[in-house]
Design a protein around this nucleic acid. Structure first.
Length: 418
RNA sequence: GGAGAGCUGGCCGAGUGGCCUAAGGCGGCGGAUUGCUAAUCCGCAGCAGGGGUGAUCACCCUUGCCGGGAGUUCGAAUCUCCCGCUCUCCGCCA
């Protein structure tokens, strides 16, 4: 949710942001109207309620005829109060709906849609591989990835990681946690089933509702990222913030992939369940842009450790999620596809999520203010794809990046089974 | 799954229909005293929304908030119902 004070002071700023996103400016006018209407309705309610309360005090002291007279008056008033309260409640609900409909105010993202991202830099040399095998072919030869049995047991877009596949993933995630701890992040293992409020607070029940698994019998949701649990972790709290508060959450993630039938069906690029280490920061709004760069630097440090070439893109305004003001993706080189594919994403959501989740800090005057939140990927199952493909050798073996070798019993090469 | 007890401000905790504008304590902030620290004494303070007066910082008025929601009542922290959560015990179970 955006800051309503900002909306009142500078509605044109919000309209400009909506245009950049390719979203309607009518939503801004709807919100302005709903805001004015709510204030008017609140005032009407408060006026009758104040009268009711003051007469109520006289009733308590009065007796006999005087009391009876007061009671007839307050009985009528009670009806008015009830009606005014209901009207104020409806105005409040209408405001909330209009409020939810307006996206966060874009900050510095390039204009345009999905294809209008700006490449900030390309890092690492692309490997020269003749007829590269794709990650599934390599993974099957190593007996590291088994999608056939994944499908047998659970359906399409499920897989088993076995042997060195399991070790690679565990090592990579462990490496991410180690790095996070070195940089002062609090390592966390988070719930993957959450209540509706938590899901709603992070905005995942809006446009992405069909992407989310729901357990009807218990009214719980399976998270698509530990961002959900980490964001909701401090909901309704006032934090002591000296500097940014940083978490690294390790969890399995679940996605229905409802709208992606027939897309990326091979291998483990797009799956219903995967594991991820996610960074999440709470900081003062004035520090958010700098913190965003820090999360991006963390991602690049990890990519360097697994020795894969990548590029960094500045995602265009029209392709941002509703809560992000800016988003940087790291895309790793995938030789079999001869293109870059997204492996990390870091978003600055400023106060948008925190306002909905009611997460605040005390400013220098001791007044509660809404915090800013940011998130970013530190490692995920999908990384196995560029790791296997970029490090493949002509003989079918796979070189193990130095940083991962300790997690594979010191091996520097993984040999295929005959 | 069954039975019971709870949920009050940053924290602890009193409050069983109007005197709640929520006692008291801890912690916090300001001041006094004081070689320093500590102790003592005095004072100030919840959160959110709305309106107003003089302004960039206050002050005044007002409404809501006692786990969440609905209800009873002229009036609810207090009574009723639904939901959530915590604790204790029993049962079942990895």
């Amino acid at each position: 949710m955006i800051d309503l004070r900002l909306l009142r002071e500078d509605p044109d700023l919000i309209r400009a942001s909506q245009r950049l996103r390719g979203e309607s400016t009518d939503l801004v006018d709807d919100l302005l109207r709903a805001d004015a209407e709510r204030r008017a309705a609140t005032q009407r309610f408060e006026a009758v309620r104040a009268e009711q309360r003051s007469i109520g005090k006289e009733v308590a002291k009065a007796s006999g005829d005087e009391r009876a007279a007061l009671l007839t008056r307050t009985k009528d008033l009670a009806v008015e109060v009830k009606a005014a309260e209901a009207a104020a409640g409806e105005a409040e609900q209408a405001l909330k709906r209009a409020h939810m409909a307006v996206s966060n105010v874009v900050e510095g993202a390039p204009p345009g849609g999905e294809d209008d991202f700006v490449v900030l830099r390309e890092v690492g040399d692309l490997p020269q591989i003749e007829n590269p095998k794709d990650h599934l072919e390599i993974g099957e030869a190593l007996r590291a990835i088994d999608t056939e049995r994944g499908a047998k047991v659970s359906g399409s877009r499920f897989y088993f990681l076995t042997g060195v596949g399991a070790l690679l993933q565990l090592g990579m995630l462990q490496l991410a946690i180690q790095q996070a701890v070195e940089h002062g992040f609090i390592p966390s293992i988070t719930p993957t089933l959450v209540r509706p409020e938590s899901m709603e607070g992070t905005g995942y029940l809006g446009a992405h509702a069909s992407e989310v698994y729901r357990l009807e019998a218990d009214d719980l949701y399976l998270v698509g990222t530990s961002e959900v649990a980490l964001a909701a972790y401090h909901s309704n709290e006032i934090l002591d913030l000296d500097g940014p508060r940083r978490y690294a959450g390790w969890s399995s993630c679940y996605r229905r992939e409802a709208g992606s039938h027939g897309k990326d069906v091979r291998g483990i690029l797009r799956v219903h369940q995967f594991d991820k280490v996610e960074m999440f920061s709470f900081c003062r709004p004035e520090d958010a842009a700098e913190e965003h760069q820090r999360l991006l630097a963390m991602e690049e440090e990890m990519l360097a450790k697994v020795e894969i070439p990548y590029r960094v893109i500045d995602v265009a305004a029209g392709d941002l999620g509703s809560s992000a003001v800016r988003k940087f993706d790291c895309e790793a080189w995938v030789p079999s596809q001869n293109r870059y594919r997204e492996v990390t994403s870091t978003s600055n959501t400023t106060t948008f999520q925190a306002r909905r989740l009611n997460i605040r800090y005390r400013d220098d005057n001791g007044k509660p203010q809404t915090v800013a939140t940011l998130n970013g990927t530190l490692a995920t199952t999908r990384w196995l794809i560029p790791i296997l493909e970029n490090h493949q050798q002509p003989d079918g073996s796979v070189r193990v990046p130095k940083a991962l070798q300790p997690f594979l019993g010191g091996r520097d090469v993984l040999e295929p089974f005959k």
